[in-house]
Amino acid sequence: MAARSDGRLGKWLVIGPPLAYLLVFFAAPALIMALASFRTPGEFGGLSPLLENGKIDLNLDSYARFFTDSIYAQIFLKSVWYALLTTLFCLLLAYPLATLIAKSGKRHRDLLLLLVILPFWSNFLIRVYAWMIILGPNAALARMVNGVLAWVGHEPVPLLFSSFAVLICLVYVHLPFMVLPLYANLEKHDQALLDAAQDLGANAWQRFWRITFPLSLPGVYAGAALVFIPALGIFAIPDILGGPEDSLIGNVIKQQFLETRDWPFGSVLSIVLTVAALAIAGFAAWVARGSLGTPSSAGEARA
């Protein structure tokens, strides 16, 4: 009897804290945001009272606004497009890097991993501002690019305050989130599979494309989710490095809570963003299961 209640207590002691954490820091804010999306913006900012003249003030105005005005959907699509490009470029850069790390010896591997996470040691905004200097019109990079452009008779282009600047910084900031899961996956691959594929007539490209790449897909999907989701909601990078055209959904959401003081609409946009991110992550997981057949294939690679 005592042992049993002890066991239950032990179970709650283990489950309790993370559960409480999720409730307090995820469920509760999400609920508050969901509720706010049905309310009316306050005169001064914030929200107008929920109970007014004995009537509960909940409405669909902000949703109606989102769904009847295509401009928000357009910005959404643009943000999705930027996040997709970011994910793609991160993947293209991270794959060879993760392969290199996975294939190098123990000592080099630790050093290389350290280099990958080293940027996290400095503040995010400082790293973004550093790109302002790197991309500035008087910096070496812009001079070189525009030198080449002048040589082929093209007028100079600004690198800073452009979509290019936003994208390059998005890729830079999110790259480690792609490298780490990819590395964790590639490191487990069984060399015998590649030997077998070679023996069965596969050339280097076929070995990569038919064996290594499909087996790395769990890592690719994990990395893609880790890159895509934060890239979708980011606002600081377009704010700092973007040109006049580079306002993304994160910026629009930020405006609702600051300049416009329209919390309900900001909540609607945030909810749509969260739903979109979840839907895309869910879709990726579904595709992942479809293409791999089983969720355990990465583990199997080791056998």
Binding site: P41, I71, I75, P244, S247, N251, V252, Q255, T260
Partner: peptide, 20 residues
Amino acid sequence: MTPAQRRLRNRMWTEIKAGR
């Protein structure tokens, strides 16, 4: 501004920023 004015202003601002 009033909330309605702020909403209208933000709608216009979003349009400007979206580059339409």
